[in-house]
Design a protein around this nucleic acid. Sequence first.
DNA 1: GGTTGCTGTGAAACGCGTTCCATACTTTAT
DNA 2: ATAAAGTATGGAACGCGTTTCACAGCAACC
Lengths: 324, 324
Amino acid sequence: MSNITEIARRARVSRTTVSRVLNNHPYVKQDKREAVLKAMQDLNYVPNLNAVNLSRGKTNVIGVIVPTINHPFFSNLIEGIGRGCYKHHYRMLVHQSNYDPGHEIEFFNMLKYKLIDGLILGSSMLSGPVLDELSHYGSVVSCEASGSRLITKVLVNHESGIRMAVEHLRSKGHRRIGLCIGNPASGIGISRKKAFSALLEAYGLEWRDDWYYEGKYSIEDGSAVAASIAGQSLAPSAMVVGSDYVAAGLIKEAARQGIKVPEELAVIGFDNQPIAQVMDLTTIQQPIVQMGETAAAALHLMLTEAERPSDQTLELELIVRQST
Amino acid sequence: MSNITEIARRARVSRTTVSRVLNNHPYVKQDKREAVLKAMQDLNYVPNLNAVNLSRGKTNVIGVIVPTINHPFFSNLIEGIGRGCYKHHYRMLVHQSNYDPGHEIEFFNMLKYKLIDGLILGSSMLSGPVLDELSHYGSVVSCEASGSRLITKVLVNHESGIRMAVEHLRSKGHRRIGLCIGNPASGIGISRKKAFSALLEAYGLEWRDDWYYEGKYSIEDGSAVAASIAGQSLAPSAMVVGSDYVAAGLIKEAARQGIKVPEELAVIGFDNQPIAQVMDLTTIQQPIVQMGETAAAALHLMLTEAERPSDQTLELELIVRQST
DNA sequence: GGTTGCTGTGAAACGCGTTCCATACTTTAT
DNA sequence: ATAAAGTATGGAACGCGTTTCACAGCAACC
């Protein structure tokens, strides 16, 4: 495999000139430029990007940490980040953390190692101070609220989403409202739970521990929630569920248990996933793909302008269907 | 940021010795090793992996090409590849091609450029000969049948999947069976269509162009199919649908149109996605995550043993629910 | 005692493109 | 005509870890 030295020799110019041609530097005479291009053609030259990366000290690769890819929220997010990366000529390195802080820190090291130029956090288990510490190694954008004050955030307003959900249910006359979330230790989980309990308090509604479910991610989990609710003597009349999948499982199992939706139990989901559509599920639509694109664009800005863009909050939308 | 030269100076050894410590080479005396480790600690040393990559001529990065991430088939596949990569200490670079051959070739160049050690094709629009040509640049594993004879394949037996579906429907007495697939030009699409028409022929069933739909990916697409079927004077009594999402949309819209499932229209999907469960959809389960893991493992084998592992075919399973 | 074979260590070259600096030739401006 | 500014090109250093080769020290072997 040829390198610039060979090209230079063949084109009878210096390696510097070859490099200039490679980088479209203006100060190269037409004839030399052509000679170089011809030599590259002849020798079937391909630049070794590792050498370029080493030289330049950057890689044009953006890392992405998500707990799992195989979850509609994150696959949508990655889709968006992927688009943003493509638009700004980055490549995207995806890492699954399984919510394991060790895995996350390991990946953060790639920033130190200069193997990635920047990092996008889909969802993280790391605490604010730890993130602040780690963010010194490079540019980081987070897609969820986190304790960190240094990291730029691109997020949906979870508080507003929960508010939409609760107010919608309240307007339908519900007073016994329960909550079901995913990972309670993640940024999303924390925000949602906090917003929810604050709202209940504000509206004078009761928070009951047995109407609160956490660690629910899948359809099966949703079924389990429905089964649990079916067994309660005083059951909630409405559930705010952090994921359409879980909500779908809940509705399905509720039907099996003879609980009428929405008459006896109203259900509102999150994300407006395809499944929400076929299940006629009222849901809070989050612009996840757009969030990914925005995050990539923000990171690009940090990397090129070397400034920290302000946090961005994307707006949510309530989509009313038959489940409330 | 420190480098091995500084470490060497501080530990009063040569750079070679530092490198040996870094790579756990046995021929380093205990005291020197400790001195080096101490110096690393003191200077907060992190190796520059770009330099390592340049030196070694490899990157421990595996590239993955998928048309889109935001599709359950591919997000599952990526999940599996991600797991396999983690297990074998690779990192995973994901690229969305949108079924654009240009994008694909562009990404293939990364093999040439030595930016990735190997490549996994989720689904490709490139023809067999082109793939054979491109595969000379490095190790490639494909997750779908392709015209290429050089590329190692890890795939599900689409022929067998279609057979399961058709035989199941036949056993239920169906004689008017239609087919609905995604991208007809992709490996999956080609295999499925071919297998399907061959089976119809073998069983003496009729192929009708108006019972065949292609380019259907989403729930909305499925609804459109149902609407189309509803308008036919002679409609199929059963549909084999290449994706659970599309099948779900089909069922949903069929219900709206007053077509009874499964009595008037049986529907069988593919993948056993969560949505299949809540829609009570009979489906052909494909071990997609496992396929991703297997593909990563196969690539690892190629990269380390420098041999081409034989193609692997994973088995499918028919999951019967209420839609047939 | 001389050979063979490890163990341990370092100098120097290598992989390869980029970039700083010096130099020289043209233009343009005054 | 002369200084100033721009154009064009090359040499050498740089980024940084790995690897080859040479060599010294030391133990085992015949």
